[in-house]
Write a protein that binds this DNA or RNA. Structure first.
Lengths: 176, 176
DNA sequence: GTTTTTAAGTCAGCCTTGTTGACATATCTC
DNA sequence: GAGATATGTCAACAAGGCTGACTTAAAAAC
């Protein structure tokens, strides 16, 4: 299919030589650690969400609405990169159960501005704290410089074209 | 539901005071960066897997079988933490399409020892290299010490009880 | 040597969360 | 007024989780 790699090459000692070894030797350690870390990272909220009969999709929606009050549907779709139909399924539930409120825009009455209700903010905060606890416990064992380094690394992992967008979204500068 | 947090408290300036501020102020930056970084991290393989009509589940199975030749079903289930039925669905396909081979154990003939075929190893390597490229590009922009720091951080994020297990799995010491 | 336990496989059905495609409605823009 | 835009909705499908029940073969226990 893609004969770049002769089959007989052992996975452990690649034959690539010179400067691009770094790019060609699989970084199995980081690949696997990222997998396991992410799994445990999302497992904390899962347990709580179960009690509300919500899933991870609900969590993501609630999280970003809580973080950016007044977010429109289009903006939320852009962040989550899912279809309108997928979003609507979970958003509808969150609205019906009173965790999110949808307000018709004033400038543009076609738009809907989403806001977490007090109940929604409460749940969002509860979940964020759970994840924060894990994040901070991990950082506590390390150099004080680690937090900046880790967030710099995570940012650098993101697609170049999105990086500025994510940076704005994460570190502020929302024009609402 | 859980009245720990009065609703009126603004998310940005929590009223918690003293030493536990770190534990109570949500680390929104890391939470969100982790989300976006992981999304892009798995998106590279997804594009290739599509060509084979495989999904992420296939990738995970192939990855760990490739990394630990001779893995048994029980060991694989323990790593992936999914049910036998879920595993079987994708494993069967990988075997039928010739990416993985299942050999009856010699010491214990009830067991199956899984091995990636040359075709399987080829695909696994191709996918690992894609992810490695992203990982290394991100690291290239940073301090040379960063790699150890990041892997230390990711390891610290993992559930305490599993940490030793994952460490063995990622950094070697397999007794097979 | 029979019984019990274990490893693996399988059938059936369900849930969540993603997808596509088609279409409706209200509102804004030109 | 015509067309574009933002949202909402119906229907059907797919991937990949899950539970529960049951089979088979082989090992272990007795």
């Amino acid at each position: 299919m893609d004969p770049t790699v002769p089959e007989a090459i052992p996975v452990i000692r690649p034959r690539t030589s010179g400067a691009d070894v770094l790019a060609e030797t699989p970084a199995y350690d980081l690949i696997e650690l990222f997998f396991f870390a992410y799994r445990d990272f999302v497992s904390d909220p899962d347990r709580i969400l179960d009690e509300y009969n919500f899933g991870r999709a609900h969590h993501r929606v609630l999280h970003f609405v809580d973080r950016q009050p007044g977010l429109t549907i289009a903006e939320l779709l852009d962040i989550l990169r899912i279809t309108k139909q997928s979003l609507n399924r979970v958003l509808k539930e969150l609205i019906e159960k009173g965790f999110i409120e949808s307000r018709t825009g004033t400038a543009d009455r076609r738009q809907r501005h989403l806001h977490a209700t007090p109940q929604g903010r409460h749940l969002a905060l509860k979940l964020a704290r759970l994840q924060t606890r894990r994040i901070m416990h991990a950082l506590a064992e390390m150099d004080p410089e680690a937090k900046n380094l880790v967030s710099g690394y995570l940012l650098a992992l993101i697609d170049q074209d999105d990086r500025a967008h994510v940076q704005r979204l994460v570190f502020g500068e929302k024009e609402t």
